[in-house]
Design a protein around this nucleic acid. Sequence first.
RNA 1: GGAGAGAUGGCAGAGUGGUCGAAUGCGGUGGUCUUGAAAACCAUUGUACUGCGAGGUACCGGGGGUUCGAAUCCCUCUCUCUCCGCCA
Length: 424
Amino acid sequence: MLTLKFIQENKEELVKRLKVKRFDAEQIVEKIIELDNNRKSTQSEVDQKQAEMNSLSKEIGMLFKQGKVSEANEAKSKTADLKENIKELNNQLNEISKELDVEVVKLPNIPHLSVPEGNSEDDNECVKEGGEIKEIEGEKLPHWELIKKYDIIDFELGTKITGAGFPVYKGKGARLQRALINFFLDEGEKAGYNEVLPPIVVNEDSGFGTGQLPDKEGMMYHATADNLYLIPTAEVPVTNIYRDEVVKEEELPLKNMAYTPCFRREAGSWGSHVRGLNRLHQFDKVEIVQIAHPEKSYEALEGMVAHVENIVNKLGLPYRILRLCGGDISFTSALTFDFEVYSAAQERWLEVSSVSNFENYQANRLKCRYKGKDMKKPELVHTLNGSALALPRIVAALLENNQTPEGIRIPEVLVPYTRFDIIN
RNA sequence: GGAGAGAUGGCAGAGUGGUCGAAUGCGGUGGUCUUGAAAACCAUUGUACUGCGAGGUACCGGGGGUUCGAAUCCCUCUCUCUCCGCCA
């Protein structure tokens, strides 16, 4: 969420810039400012009464000590009204604060100045294309046919064990998963990311910290007996490492990565174009997360984009990088680059990574700050994350693009990990 | 799952109703001394809100209560540790 200070000091600019996100902030901003001013004045009234109360109490203590019991009792009688008054004001203050919290989370993050105008994914700006779209020799099958043909991923079996969207990877299919995970982690390590293996269920506080709760509660599987949530992305546990922390300035940037399974309920979003591996309830992903100095977060973002590009390149997949437009960028992001790979048999681009800078929007909610030696107060950090990479669509593209009459060729970089070079 | 003990500042650890935002030690920062370092000595050292400022207010695991006054008493929740049980 945005800081109240920023909203107070930049209200015109805020309203103007949120228009790029197709968000009309004017009324909410007005309401927030009014509530915040109200909060401040009520707070200072409470403080003042409280100060009165404190000094009165001190006085009473002194009087008792000096044995002046009747004077003490007299002073005591004065406190009743004050006490009632404070209670009343505190109730008001609570109401105002609650209302303010509700309003302030309604405002999305401010888009970066480079975010293009636009209403939908069709208006995203392609900043780069790479790799080569090769002709497929022979029969051109979509991956959902290929996995059946070679018996490497079994959807029906997953349905039997769990339900739709929980595939079972078998034989070379399973090993390909493991190979990709290890390859991604090794590449991440080379790029300076520290590997963590976090819990894949999280508590409510963590859900709030990264913004899945309270709004997007429906996206997560919820273990109600213990009130824990299955993570939709490793971003949740890995970013929450730094919830309520003040980190040292010289430690920045903190670069972490994690492999985790991810769970998404994706309620009601199933249709014809989400066949096969295109959308699942459970999938594997390696996520990279950075906690960066505010002045260096865009440098960090560039580094993350370069890292993802490097991996996609090594896999030999045709790709393009999109700068998301105001209408497509997420609520919490300031700037997002999507990576898409071309899937030859489906003849469409598949999103495989999304790399974002949240600036201090997420950090404000997390209360993650940094402090340097000559800083008087800690300041909010910037947070960034990106997939590097999500497996299912990478697998889909690899299977489809590398199919030959003999079988599916495994990219050279993966062979040391898979220990086979063809699926046939 | 059963029984017991506990949660205080960056860490360790005192504090059982008033002058406690909290002793003391360690650590951190600045300084004196030194060619430099160590040692010693001196000073300083939490966060948030609010105010131009002096200052004020809140915070001793979370929430609630008793009281003129709570780190301290009561209720409740969470977590940690020890022992027992179960277990990859």
